[in-house]
Design a protein around this nucleic acid. Structure first.
Lengths: 137, 137
DNA sequence: ATAAATCCTGTAGTTACTACGGATTCAAGA
DNA sequence: TCTTGAATCCGTAGTAACTACAGGATTTAT
């Protein structure tokens, strides 16, 4: 699974990163990962550099960046990028995340209200259902 | 665009809800919206009830619920659920919402860390990008 | 040496839309 | 009333970001 140069197979890389095999191949096809070295028989071999690159992609995806955004983050690391440009992308993503949190907090309190209106019996009617359609946002 | 019974065309509904026309038709095909009334010529006419239903769907979608989750919220209002069953679904959705909030809060703090590491100049290097490569989560 | 595990390519399916294209239908002005 | 121009119809195809086969080749462990 590993050779003397710390290269790993696609399965090894999958275990290291938590990214599934099909997804790794998909990233290669989508040009986020470069074509890796191959064994005699054609199996992919990933160097430490590529391992780090995939780790980066996975983290960025977990942070909610689109593949297009990840691509531009990677281009920033590959080519010349300015700190301003990076900060711009990060702050933009931060504001997206913050507004999602706000919206979810509103829904949370709406759901709490609904739950508190349930009398909880086996009755065929529930005040919470009516409140569902009357939520004020 | 509106008649005496407060029915609106699909375009009117689109403007009211912010949901685009193709999406409204898609929700009908996906059985989230029932088939609405039609004009003589076959154009869709949406009653107040359906307007409220779509508004609900859009809110739930903006909050990150999948269509499948929206469907089960809607089934509470359509099918004859008992108060106990409703409460169950509501509490379940509540825990889903809460874990989404937690997850987003983690993303928020990770992004804040990234942003704080940006010195912000036109410099050719950015600590935030390095931190993405080295982040332990 | 052989069986089990892993990997290969390529295609098709998934979710939740979005964008067309060509044919009606509707609404508003002359 | 007639005539446009905007809106709507339906069906198909494309999008993002995967995920799941199928059927065969390669690698690894016993």
């Amino acid at each position: 699974m590993t050779n003397k140069c710390d290269s790993v197979s696609i399965g090894g890389l999958s275990k290291l990163t938590g990214c599934n095999i099909e997804t790794i191949r998909y990233y290669e096809k989508a040009s986020l990962m470069p074509a890796p070295a191959r064994t005699e028989g054609g199996h992919r071999l990933y160097s430490k550099t590529l391992q780090r690159r995939l780790t980066f992609i996975c983290k960025a995806r977990r942070l909610g960046f689109t593949l297009q955004e990840v691509r531009s983050l990677l281009e920033m690391t590959d080519g010349g990028y300015s700190c301003d440009e990076v900060k711009q992308v990060v702050l933009n993503q931060l504001s997206v995340v913050r507004s999602k949190i706000e919206e979810l907090a509103r829904l949370e309190s709406n759901l709490e209200t609904m739950a508190s209106q349930c009398s909880g019996g086996g009755l065929p009617h529930c005040a919470a259902v009516d409140s569902l359609f009357n939520m004020t946002d």
